[in-house]
Structures are given as structure tokens and as C-alpha cells.
């Protein structure tokens, strides 16, 4: 039995809670907007627009907070990785998830102080937090001011282009969220990771 480690400081937990709730609201309202129809509506269109806008703004603020906090606290270290050997480490972890886990092997990169994330977690968090979040937030902000967008970008309507970026990033983040929640059930017990994210202790 390993000693409990305090891995998730309060600010991470609060940020994460806000982030997850906003993402859920955005995904639900976003889907409702994308598939709005006359006969049946999940959420009334203008209501969905307002909720989507407000949660988007909160998410943005939260994201900026996350950037700064990660920059100026030690939590940022968990997001740095060395390219050398990255691929083989990721493959090793992937192999574990696809086979090893069923043979009750030990995880190749067990959690310890200084290594909160396994290589797969690390790479997906970095991609999500430093590539797709900026994409979706910047395109979202741009769609907030549609009249300022250029008429054409690469030959298609400016709004249309930005909207495609927005929708594709939204799609990727939704997939991430599903996979992310599933992977969080792979812990000592299916719920232990969620408990860690609530009380901070692993």
C-alpha cells in the first residue's frame, strides 16, 4: 500500500470543477444549436445561445487562470515532456491499457510524487489544454463578433470557416471528455480517481 499523496491542489480541483461543468453545458447547448429544428427543440434556441455564450466566457476566464496557475506553480511540471522516447513510453502505456490490464500486470508508470500522469494522460492533457482549447476558445471569441470577420477565408465564407474550426474542435473535445471520464474509472477502484479529484489525495 503506497502512502497517500496530495496531488491535486485546491486550485486545480476548483478550476477542474468549473471547467468540467462549463464543458458539459457547452456540449449540450452546442449540440442543441447544431441540431435545432422546428418540430422539437431540446432547448429553446435563444436560450441555448445565451447559455452557450455565458459558459463559453466562463470557460475562457478559467482557461486563462489555468495557464497562469500552471505557469507559476509546480503543477506545470506535470505538463512538460521530453520528446525523446515519448513514442515508446506512450505505446507501452497503450499496450498496458489494451492487454496488460486484463492480465493484472502492474501499470508501467504508477503514480508517484513527481509523476502524476502516465505518458498517455500527459500527452492527451497537453494536446487538449494547449492545442484544442486555444482553438475552440479563439474561434468561439471570433464568432462572438461575426460582423468583424473577413468575408472570405480560403475561398469560403469567413464565418463558415471559423465555425468549422469551432465545431471540429468541439467534436474532438467531446470525444476527449468521454474517453477521459472512462480512463478516470481505471484506478485502484473505479471511483478512486474521482475521489482524488474531490479531496486532492491520491
Amino acid at each position: 500500500m503506497t502512502k497517500p499523496m496530495y496531488l491535486y491542489p485546491l486550485w486545480v480541483r476548483l478550476w477542474h470543477l468549473a471547467n468540467a461543468l462549463m464543458c458539459l453545458a457547452l456540449i449540450i447547448t452546442g449540440l442543441s444549436l447544431q441540431y435545432s429544428s422546428i418540430e422539437y427543440t431540446m432547448i429553446p434556441f435563444n436560450y441555448a445561445i445565451s447559455v452557450h455564450n455565458i459558459s463559453g466566457i466562463i470557460l475562457c476566464v478559467g482557461y486563462v487562470f489555468f495557464l497562469f496557475a500552471n505557469r507559476f506553480t509546480s503543477n506545470g511540471h506535470y505538463y512538460q515532456f521530453h520528446l525523446k522516447g515519448m513514442l515508446s513510453r506512450v505505446l507501452k502505456q497503450a499496450r498496458y491499457y489494451s492487454f496488460g490490464i486484463f492480465k493484472h500486470e502492474q501499470p508501467p508508470f504508477p503514480v508517484k510524487v513527481g509523476r502524476k500522469f502516465n505518458p498517455l494522460q500527459k500527452i492527451s492533457y497537453v494536446f487538449v489544454m494547449y492545442i484544442f482549447m486555444p482553438f475552440i476558445l479563439i474561434s468561439g471569441i471570433a464568432l462572438f463578433f461575426p460582423d468583424l470577420l473577413p468575408d472570405k477565408i480560403f475561398g469560403i465564407g469567413g464565418i463558415h470557416f471559423i465555425d468549422l474550426i469551432h465545431i471540429i474542435s468541439g467534436f474532438i473535445l467531446s470525444i476527449f471528455m468521454v474517453v477521459h471520464i472512462y480512463f478516470c474509472t481505471i484506478g485502484k477502484t473505479p471511483l478512486s480517481n474521482f475521489k482524488s479529484m474531490v479531496n486532492g489525495w491520491h
Binding site: 447544431q34 435545432s36 469560403i156 463558415h160
Partner: peptide
């Protein structure tokens, strides 16, 4: 319309 404007929904 797809080219010129983008209409949510």
C-alpha cells in the same frame, strides 16, 4: 449559402 454565410442549425 454554404459558401457565403454560415447559419447555426
Amino acid at each position: 449559402i454554404l459558401e457565403d454565410s454560415y447559419m447555426i442549425g
